[in-house]
Structure formats: C-alpha cells, structure tokens
Computed example of a mutant assay.
Amino acid sequence: MNFIKTTEQDSNYDHLENMSVNELLTNINKEDQTIAKAVEKVIPQVELLTTQIIKKLTEGGRLFYIGAGTSGRIGILDASECPPTFGVPHDLVIGLIAGGDTAIRKAVENAEDSINQGWKDLQEYNISKKDIVIGIAASGTTPYVISALKEANKHKIITGCITMNENSPLAKTANYPIVCLVGPEFVTGSSRMKAGTAQKLILNMISTSTMIQLGHVKGNKMVDMQLSNHKLIKRGIKMIVNEIDVEESLAKNLLLEHKSVRKAIQFYKNAKNK
C-alpha cells in the first residue's frame, strides 16, 4: 500500500496572510472541530494499547513515551502530570525526547535523525520486557523513534505508537499502532496544530484510563493527588467533607495530618468503626 503523508499535504486554506484575525481564528477553530471525531474513530486501537499498558503496570512495569519535537514534548507533558494528579512515582510514566531535556524548550539540530540515540536513551532507564514503550511521531517517519521501537521489539518489549499517517514506517513497526488521521494542517505541515492536539487527546485517554484502572481515582475524584499547593489542599478538604460528611475544620486537620485524601478518609472510617 502507498504511504502518503497527509500531515504534509497542502492546507485546505490559502492566502492566510490576507485573512483578518477573526477569519484566522474562525478557520483554525473549524479545523480543530474535526479532531475529536478523528480520535473517536481510533478508540478501538487506543483500547488495545491501553489494555496492554494496564497489564504491564499492574505487573510492576513502567510506561515510556518517546518522541521528537512537539511529539516528544507532549509525551513529557503527559508523563510529568501523572505524579501530581494520581500520586504515582515519578518513574512510573517516563517521557523521553530526542536531544534530551534541552530539547523541551529549544529545538536540538538533527536530534530526531539519529538511528541509535533513541534506544540508548531507553537503556539509560534499564528498560526491560516488563515495560512498554509508545513512540509518538505525527509523520510516522522519525528515525529516533522508529529505531528505538525496532530495538525494543528485538528485546521482546511491547511497543505502541501514535501517528497521523496511514501505512507509515512507525505504524508498521509498533505492535499496537494508533493511526489517527487528522488530515492537512491549517498551516501546511505544522503538525503542532491538529496532529499535536490529537496526540494530547489520545494520551489523556491512555494515562487517565490507566490510572483509574490502577485504582488511583475513587468515584470521580483524584484521591491520590499530591497536595502541592493551596488550591489542591482546598480541593482535598472538599473531597473529604463530601465523602465522610464532617465539618471543614475536621477535614482540614485530617488532610494535613495524613497528607493524602485517601488516607485521611480511611483513617476516619476505621476510627469510626472501632
């Protein structure tokens, strides 16, 4: 089958420089409205990969995201939000980017073209077949990502990917590919736009569903969240008040003592049942 980079195809719009600000915003938004539908179509693919992730993490493994440029940054963003949101260790979900931490803020020249560095970066974490790796690349052709997944496959490590081009080399490499066809970008080739948004939506689905299945959400509340600022402490107090029907002052004392919504609720319930 032919490999066509839809992410590189001409925009559906032209003469952008002649548009008014309102026209630009309206047309970008019009394109953005197609993204959720594109993601909806790949839910079966997302489910297959997420099921494997839950299995590996339940058995003590870790989840790795690996990408370059925007794709790498989006992976790092999702990974970095798991500890504060769900109270999990920082080394449970790990995001890697071509060029290392410097590339998070500033593009590193030729980093994504390396066919050796991706696997080296994974080896820094002593990756093994207990773990699982998701390669993220809108184009599906990034050497840094593809070569890392190929080596992971050789070492019997389960691989997945998120890409926006059908029949891409990356999609053919991953055990569990997610191919989300968002079509041409508003600015031709600017995959930080629709493709990047779709990647973020998919990663939201994967990590949130995984953490819920691992027991880090109770009802619809983040009971294991880290209490790292006043806003989160207030949210935690409200959760406790609603869950065990106590005065706010007691809820606050319980939370500050136990440093966890879950532990505060459990302590109160255990004490009450004695």
Rank of each mutant, 00 (worst) to 15 (best):
L57F: 00
F186N: 09
V145E: 15
Q33M: 05
T163A: 06
A38M: 06
N27S: 00
L149K: 07
R105G: 13
K106E: 14
S80L: 12
G118M: 14
T159L: 05
G100F: 00
V108G: 14
G87A: 10
I233W: 09
K274W: 12
Q123T: 15
I94L: 10
H90G: 14
D245L: 12
G67T: 08
N220T: 01
K41L: 09
I202Q: 07
A36C: 06
M193L: 11
M211T: 02
T188Q: 10
P184R: 00
K41T: 03
P143Y: 13
P143C: 12
F267Q: 15
N29H: 11
F64Y: 11
A137K: 10
I74V: 13
V261Y: 09
S114M: 13
Q266T: 15
R105T: 05
H258Q: 14
K130N: 13
G160H: 06
D101Q: 14
T51L: 08
V241D: 10
T142A: 02
K120G: 14
K30L: 02
K263D: 15
V21I: 04
K221A: 08
I237L: 08
G219A: 03
T208D: 05
L256F: 01
P89M: 04
M205P: 04
I43Q: 03
K221M: 14
S71Y: 03
A36H: 05
I53N: 08
G99T: 14
D224K: 07
K129G: 05
P89R: 02
E31M: 08
